[in-house]
Design a protein around this nucleic acid. Structure first.
Length: 110
DNA sequence: AAACTGACTAATA
DNA sequence: CTATTAGCCAGTT
């Protein structure tokens, strides 16, 4: 399994209406400090893949810039369509919209 | 094989 | 709050 596929698997679990950061994806995939690789994986993502790539934003809660600015706008529209709100500066409140998930846990909490 | 390149981040000023 | 910087690391040249 490639690291890309591990990232995709995590991203697929992001619920509609929530977002996750690149670093968060990397950590959940078991590959800490691979945030940049996550972005790279998304850039390489084939259009046909059913991966909610639009739900991945940077640690500041904004849609990251990229080579083709167009898809950036598309991403925002897709998120707004999921009822995610942007402030005047184009940022999402992570406090309210970030996907919070329990990290892997080995022991059972009684 | 060495250099370059990011859809990144946390720390610092 | 914004701007800069130094880490980061696999895929591409």
């Amino acid at each position: 399994m490639t690291s890309f596929e591990r990232f995709y698997a995590v991203i697929k679990r992001i619920p509609k209406g929530k977002v996750a950061t690149y670093g968060q994806i990397a950590r959940l995939a078991g590959l800490p400090r691979h945030a940049r690789q996550v972005g790279f994986a998304l850039a390489a993502l084939p259009e046909r893949a059913r991966v909610p790539w639009q739900r991945v934003v940077n640690a500041s809660g904004e849609v990251s810039a990229r080579e083709h600015p167009n898809s950036q706008a598309i991403q925002r529209v897709m998120l707004e369509r999921e009822k995610i709100e942007f402030d005047q500066r184009g940022r999402i409140s992570l406090a309210g919209f970030q996907w919070k998930v329990r990290e892997r846990r080995t022991a059972r909490p009684s």
